[in-house]
Write a protein that binds this DNA or RNA. Structure first.
Lengths: 176, 176
DNA sequence: CCTAGTGATGTCAGTGTCTGACATCAATGA
DNA sequence: TCATTGATGTCAGACACTGACATCACTAGG
């Protein structure tokens, strides 16, 4: 993180990271699949939180409640993980490099897929489940982008709730 | 495409592609930013179709109509571009490789961003515009996945309409 | 106390992607 | 006729990543 913040992602070599960590390049690649993956370790934990929230909801909970539960749990977990300042620093690094954005999008796509699977487990049909998975990820990442914005002080969970409301009115209009 | 289909993306070297094309490796990289980009040329055209549909809609069109217009235009354009069989072949290659999926997700994220910008141009507020951009992309890619499925024969535009309907009922339930 | 095995790390050689610098060569236009 | 321009080739090199093998500390069993 220090090296990335100082010289940028591309200008930082794996040799440099390994040296700073006191290991060889080969050892680095035994811990991380590739150079980008350093910034995405522990991502599967967040995914588990989303999924657990859905799987652990009361049996009679309507779809809405499942999505809200997943977002609340996920948002809270992310906030507790390493704090907003860490998230800001990490986000700036990722925002400056397309390779990293690609990786982040892949992680989010997997999150969407996991959420969809969890919903299918609860009897939701395939297509609505996929769309709901995307919706959850959309609300999550839009709220996250706002959460790490320079002047923002509000809670991530609160911002997610606002996002859900926005989608509601957005689609409500849609009925005409 | 032939080489990728035959040996897979990773096993195909740029040297091999260049040779097949009758040029040198260096020339390949003057036409494509990297090896993956070969499969994503002409993507900006599709993006333009989505944006034009929004920008060109009647001044008094409600948000719903803008999203439907964008999806109809984009779906139709994609269908007319190179046909379903080509899309299937391309999709299979991409589905077999995570690097290519990452690139595709990046392209879709850019599409979402463009759609959101086009909506902002029409006076939609920032957050709803972003969410609507994601929604359009979600409906588009979910419908696309179904469109290229093995036994599917329905129209892409029709599948997108179904997706929109699904989101409607999905969020309608949400009101309680 | 010895020893065989196990896991983490180092070493090394090699492949493949991608880039910068420079050379070549054909087409174009004054 | 000649300078210019654009496309391509040539070459060397940086860097990411991998497979194969060596080393070495630690541990369990005799």
């Amino acid at each position: 993180m220090e090296l990335f913040a100082e010289h940028g992602f591309e200008a930082t070599t794996v040799a440099g990271i390994a040296e700073r960590a006191g290991v060889t390049e080969r050892t680095f690649f035994r811990y991380f699949a590739d150079k980008r993956e350093v910034l995405f370790a522990g991502e599967q934990h967040l995914e588990a939180v989303f999924v657990s929230a859905i799987a652990g909801a009361p049996a009679d909970a309507p779809l809405t409640d499942l999505l809200v539960a997943a977002l609340d749990a996920g948002g809270a977990a992310l906030q507790d993980m390493r704090g907003r300042e860490f998230a800001r620093a990490r986000n700036e690094i990722i925002g400056a490099n397309e390779q990293l954005q690609e990786r982040e999008l892949l992680k989010l796509a997997k999150l969407s897929h996991s959420v969809a699977s969890a919903l299918v487990e609860r009897g939701i049909a395939d297509v609505p489940a996929r769309l709901a998975g995307d919706l959850v990820v959309s609300v999550f990442s839009t709220a996250f982008a706002r959460w790490v914005a320079a002047d923002e002080t509000r809670d991530l969970v609160e911002l997610q709730r606002q996002g859900l409301t926005a989608i509601n009115t957005l689609v409500r209009t849609e009925t005409g």
